[in-house]
Design a protein around this nucleic acid. Structure first.
Length: 585
RNA sequence: GCGGCUGUAGCUCAGCGGAUUAGAGCAUCGGUCUACGGAACCGAGGGUCGGGGGUUCGAAUCCCUCCAGCCGCACCA
């Protein structure tokens, strides 16, 4: 019961998932008694599935739940699909028939999507990662990047058009000092410094001069004015900073195996030309109020610490625009130009109130139709061992690339200790795959809303609920197939599932669509992670109990088919999380 | 002060549109090795689900309250 599907269902060319078959039959029976009753179907540890909807139904009708259960049973047609019995106070426990499981498994074997339904092709804008130009990517960017990318992959797999938007911080007052610093270093020197990925020291260099040198500070201020005024030379220098940074981000994304590309970068500056319109249109709508010299909107229901209405500051006293203006412009752009059906912001939880306000204003202004789903996919912090924000010993932010390097190093050391025919470069490559899996899985396997403690030792372990464990399970499966000497056709398989471990594995396989649906419906990748770990455990239990290659036919073929499906499910599931499944480890 | 999030086994975490005996991983202890990868598997101990009230036939789950921690709360994004 660690995953629960959403309620929205999609079509998949005639393939109906096990969950949907059961839900359909149950819904008909419940509807016959009271239209629209949810059967509350879920997986069960008492039987294969259980339906708890009888309890609520009985309550609303003032009946004894067991009597209601009987009435549902009379309407319920699950012939050939499942045995049903009323249990406890009125639960319906469902046990799938072997025949039905066999049918479902055979369907999965011939279905590339492994039973996951596709969508009608909606347009989904996912705003994620968002590093800052001329600043290092650090652990603070990890979650947005990893979670956003996993969601992007899941949506794409479902058949939606994903428009990734990397809302990089490429504008604002710091650029005055950054450009002046660039000039001080000389362009070639500056580019060299930026391109080796040492963005932090570049930024710190600029900052130090800004704080210590009044003349530099003055130049910086003038430079900001020139930048905002559109001065061509200043603009060119700014572009150098942007280009070099974006190239560096691309390296980090490649190291992380994240699908973002430079063409997904649509930074804050992109919206500059739209900001005047935002102000003008808000004013025309009568939503704009001047307060303390700033132009604000006061959405209903927000108050500050003194209980007074809380403003969303659109234009500052100095006539500069705040990020609220940019975010509002972005919403408009995404709705009217990108034609988004859905917009997701994968941004840290602390910005919750800001997004609530922005969206409230956008809705009030009519820029965000009710039909467009718009969600803040919030996530908690990455904590260090001391349960405080993850920092280095010396209190500095932890570079993302450094984190990956360390993880790779550890994986490589662990691999080197084992006898293997791998070349050093093969081993090195494998180590990067394991390291990525470790870091990403750790992030994607807990409820995103919570903070989590970053513990490299735990996440890179091959034991337990880790990415490497799942990769290992997959690699073991692949090794079975490498030993196969003759061509083998899984489509002819008949599943008898005589061994308990075979049946448990089959039940896991058949539940894959539920897990993907649940992850998408709730925007919680950990639903899928939890499913995959459970499946891997079912597989290893099966693998211990049931010899495959040495089993007599037709058992051998059946078990091979189960292995085949498990292998494909693990690989596909991991790929939806952005995690690779190597053939060998 | 207002708002949000969090508090479940020694540790890290699932479960929280109420429902049959509260789950997992790690750690600990005890087992399994002449089968396809032991980086594995099986088993055991370990929890008054932060405290207290309430609703309910039934609450980790819903409501109220208190405690503890983290994070927001007007011109930095």
């Amino acid at each position: 019961m660690w995953y629960r599907p959403g309620r929205t269902r999609w079509e998949n060319g005639g393939v109906t998932s096990t969950y949907d078959v059961l839900l359909g039959r149950l819904s008909s029976a419940f509807d016959a008694i009271s239209e629209g009753t949810d059967p509350v179907l879920r997986t069960s540890d008492r039987s294969d599935y259980q339906a708890n909807g009888v309890m609520a139904l009985a309550k609303s009708r003032g009946e004894n739940p067991r009597d209601t259960a009987q009435k549902v049973m009379e309407q319920l047609d699950l012939a050939g699909i499942a045995e049903v019995e009323v249990a406890g106070p009125g639960f319906l426990n469902l046990t799938l028939t072997t025949q039905f499981l066999n049918d479902q498994l055979r369907t999965l074997i011939s279905d590339e999507r492994l039973g996951v339904a596709g969508s009608t092709g909606r347009t989904v804008v996912i705003d994620y990662s968002a590093p800052n130009v001329a600043k290092e990517m650090h652990v603070g960017h990890l979650r947005s990047t990893v979670i956003g990318d996993a969601l992007a992959r899941m949506y794409r797999f479902r058949g939606d058009t994903v428009i990734a938007r990397n809302h990089v911080g490429d504008w604002g007052t710091p650029f005055g000092m950054l450009i002046e610093h660039l000039l001080d270093l000389g362009e070639d020197e500056a580019i060299a410094s930026l391109s080796i990925g040492d963005l932090d020291s570049f930024y710190r260099g600029a900052r130090a001069k800004f704080d210590a040198d009044d003349a530099f500070k003055e130049r910086s201020r003038a430079r900001v004015v020139a930048l905002q005024g559109g001065d061509a030379e200043t603009r060119r220098l700014w572009q150098i900073l942007v280009d070099e940074s974006v190239a560096y981000f691309a390296e980090v994304y490649r190291a992380l195996d994240v699908t973002l590309t430079p063409s997904d970068v649509v930074g804050e500056s992109y919206y500059n030309d739209m900001l005047d319109d935002v102000v003008r249109d808000l004013d025309a709508l009568g939503l704009l109020v001047e307060s303390g010299g700033a132009l604000c909107v006061f959405p209903e229901g927000f108050t500050n610490r003194d209980g007074e209405p809380l403003p969303l500051i659109v234009q500052k006293r100095d006539e500069g625009f705040g990020y609220a203006a940019t975010d509002l412009a972005a919403v408009r752009d995404r709705v009217s130009n990108l034609h988004a059906d859905e917009i997701l912001y994968v941004v840290g939880a602390p910005q919750g109130q800001h997004f609530e306000m922005v969206l409230a204003v956008a809705r009030a202004a009519g820029w965000l139709p009710a039909a467009v789903r718009c969600e803040h996919v919030a996530f908690g912090n990455v904590l260090g061992p001391d349960r405080k924000m993850f920092k280095t010993r010396s209190g500095e932010t932890v570079k993302l690339i450094g984190l990956l390097d360390e993880a790779t190093q550890r994986a490589d050391v662990a691999l080197a200790l084992r006898p293997s025919a791998m070349t050093e470069s093969e081993r090195r490559h494998l180590a990067t795959q394991i390291a990525r899996a470790a870091v990403k899985y750790a992030d994607l396997s807990t409820d995103r809303q919570r903070d989590y403690v970053f513990d490299l030792d735990r996440m890179i372990a091959f034991e337990g609920d880790t990415g490497p464990y799942l990769q290992y399970a997959h690699a073991r499966l692949r090794s079975i197939f490498r030993r196969l000497e003759h061509p083998w056709d899984p489509s002819a398989t008949t599943f008898t599932l005589n061994d308990r471990a075979e049946r448990e594995l089959a039940l896991g396989l058949v539940a894959f669509p539920e897990a993907v649906d649940a992850a998408l419906a709730t925007l919680q990748p950990h639903r899928l992670s939890g499913y995959l770990f459970d499946l891997a455990q079912r597989f290893t239990a099966f693998y211990e109990a049931c010899p495959v290659l040495v089993a007599p036919e037709p058992q051998r073929s059946e078990r091979l088919a189960l292995c085949e499906l498990t292998s494909r499910t693990l690989a596909l599931g991991l790929s939806l999380l952005g995690i690779e499944a190597p053939e060998q480890m």
